[in-house]
């Protein structure tokens, strides 16, 4: 019998996919951004349904919070008007793109259908309670992956400097006019 968790999953999947389709079909970039926010929130819901509570919280804060604010601010910076031709032209190339995406999806779907059930046939073991799972996550992050963690920190510093540099070169928002 189907349980509440199953219906929740199908609802979240529906919202996610509708949001994803709307992101790539909306004519106005600001609507794309808002649909993307909805998609992010429902993906956070999917994470919750997979018992990844902490990652779901980070998803809400980082994606639905910070990254979306970044997108919306940049869109507001621009002269916003409805795009007359938002999609790339060309019937043949458009058909080829759709076909290749379809083949790609079929390839992944086929491999999922053929393999995944055999690898993870037994039902999942119950993970620990929320606080313990978060603790285990932190332990893994700060012992096994400590080097990667530090490298990511350096990467963020480089990105911050790079973004500031990009916005200061000629034509940026804080351009030096001489």
């Amino acid at each position: 019998m189907l349980e509440l968790a199953d219906y929740t999953f199908y609802f979240l999947a529906l919202v996610t996919l509708v949001g994803g389709i709307a992101v790539i079909t909306a004519q106005n970039p600001i609507y794309s951004a808002l649909w993307l926010a909805l998609t992010m929130v429902s993906v956070a819901g999917v994470f919750v349904s997979l018992d990844a509570w902490f990652v779901a919280g980070v998803q809400l804060i980082v994606y639905a919070g910070a990254v979306m604010v970044l997108f919306v601010m940049v869109i507001m910076l621009f002269d916003l008007r409805r795009e007359t031709n938002a999609f790339s032209r060309g019937m043949v190339s458009g058909f080829l793109k759709l076909a290749s995406a379809g083949i790609f999806l079929g390839l992944i779907g086929g491999s999922i259908y053929n393999s995944a059930e055999t690898v993870f046939a037994p039902p999942p073991a119950e993970l620990e309670k929320t606080a313990d799972a978060t603790k285990a996550l932190a332990n893994t992050l700060f012992t096994k992956y400590i080097f990667s963690f530090e490298v990511i920190g350096v990467l963020l510093l480089v990105i911050a400097i790079g973004a500031v540099t990009l916005s200061r070169v000629q034509g940026g928002t804080h351009a030096k006019h001489d």
């Binding site: 996919l17 994803g20 389709i21 992101v23 790539i24 795009e83 031709n85 938002a86 999609f87 790339s88 458009g94 793109k97 759709l98 290749s100 995406a101 379809g102 790609f104 999806l105 992944i108």
Partner: peptide
Amino acid sequence: TLGVLGVLLRK
């Protein structure tokens, strides 16, 4: 795949 289509089709 939706993301791939967005990258391919949008300008």
